[in-house]
């Protein structure tokens, strides 16, 4: 029979083991706040082991929407932010929370919908026209609604279509306030349209009746950038380790690795660190 002393010892032992990894992971690890798309697309599971082998640095990724990831950086809870909403990133820099933003890679957004396609938008090249058709038909549309990069891109596209979705919330336009995968699951189970980044879509396993209906409009471009959190704002930021991660991502080697990441032969991200205006 377990006596109280054994139980207490076991409790203390387990607590001390739980605390130990945090103590020793201090040495060579950084926290990167990133987007759900980089995680849901599987990019990090592929890229981070390569980086670790090269440098010995463990990258701990917190996967959030772009807005939340930047807030994590603002609070000083991450060393690096790796997101995709240029205007929000520039605001982050202008507030003094970031050191310098580096473009890393791009892919594009795709408009996903059910095969039945009630709005009749399949094969179109003009995303604004497609969105107007969805609204005119009162066809269901799922919005991320979570201040993520994809949400920001979606709102910009609605603006380009002259549709005020603020007014439409609750009817055919449903903001779910969740990540990309949850939005795709919801769209799949309710025959709705949804905007997704291509990487998350390709890696998504519950496609069901959903498919890409509109793609290739240049307004659906999706640029990713990486920024070191400003050590002048938060002294705990591991600037050297964080900078090595950024240097790797934009180095020829890191850029090649990103371009080499494929699922079923399909490339998910296109490196473009040399395009400094991106």
């Amino acid at each position: 029979m377990l006596n109280r002393r054994t139980l207490l010892t076991a409790a203390l032992l387990s607590a001390s083991i739980a605390f130990a990894p945090s103590a020793f992971a201090q040495d060579k690890s950084i926290i990167v706040a990133s987007t759900t798309s980089t995680q849901d697309s599987g990019l990090f599971e592929y890229l981070l082991p390569l980086f670790k082998t090269k440098t010995g640095i463990t990258v701990k990724v917190i996967s959030q929407g772009t807005g939340q990831a930047l807030d994590t950086g603002r609070r000083g809870d991450a060393d690096v932010v790796f997101v995709h909403a240029k205007s929000a990133e520039e605001k982050f820099l202008s507030e003094g929370f970031g050191v310098k933003r580096h473009p890393v890679m791009y892919n594009d957004f795709v408009l996903i919908g059910p095969k039945s396609d009630p709005a009749g938008i399949k094969g179109g090249k003009d995303v604004a026209k497609a969105l107007v058709a969805i609204k005119d038909k009162n066809a269901s549309f799922i919005s991320r609604g979570d201040k993520s990069g994809t949400h920001a891109a979606e709102l910009a596209l609605w603006k380009a279509s002259n549709v005020d979705v603020e007014k439409e919330t609750g009817g055919w336009y449903k903001a779910i306030g969740q990540g990309m995968g949850a939005a795709l699951n919801t769209a799949g189970s309710s025959n709705a349209y949804v905007l997704s980044d291509r990487g998350s879509w390709i890696n998504f396993k519950n496609k069901g009746d959903l498919g890409i209906l509109v793609e290739g409009d240049k307004r659906m471009f999706n640029q990713y950038g990486v920024t070191l959190v400003n050590p002048a704002k938060h002294a705990n930021v591991k600037k050297d380790l964080g900078q090595s991660f950024i240097d790797y991502l934009i180095s020829p080697e890191g850029q090649k690795a990103i371009g080499d990441y494929k699922i079923n032969g399909e490339q998910l991200f296109y490196p473009n660190a040399e395009d400094t205006g991106a």
Binding site: A182, N185, K205
Partner: peptide, 9 residues
Amino acid sequence: ALETSKGDL
């Protein structure tokens, strides 16, 4: 939660 969000139900 993560596998659900990846659609791997």
